[in-house]
């Protein structure tokens, strides 16, 4: 995975920081995500997967928001850093 490539949030690994590029969602869900801070240009940190693998918690403007993969797969961005860590416990 190259540093500059655009990936959906679903492919982000826990610990990675991703800068949002664009969203393909429309309607109410798009507005809701914008309100929560999933705005193009803003930074999102992948926190962790739920025990059954989905949803995934993201850190966005100092808050923690969990998204199902139906939504996070439609948000795209590039990895800008952060270290991958598997939930250690």
């Amino acid at each position: 995975m190259s540093q500059s490539s655009i990936i959906p949030l679903t492919e982000g690994l826990p610990g990675q920081r991703i800068r949002i590029h664009h969203m393909t969602l429309e309607g109410t869900m798009r507005r809701r995500l914008l309100d929560l801070g999933f705005v193009p240009g803003s930074e999102v940190k992948v926190l962790q997967r739920s025990p059954l693998g989905d949803p995934v918690a993201f850190r966005v403007i100092h808050t923690t928001i969990a998204l199902r993969k139906e939504e996070s797969s439609q948000i795209f961005g590039e990895i800008i850093g952060g270290e991958y860590h598997e939930s250690t416990h």
Partner: peptide, 19 residues
């Protein structure tokens, strides 16, 4: 300190310990 809740979540909602 901002990440305290996240650290706790790593245990409370982890694959192994969550349930």
């Amino acid at each position: 300190k901002m990440m305290r809740s996240e650290k706790l979540d790593r245990i409370l909602t982890s694959k192994v310990w969550g349930f």
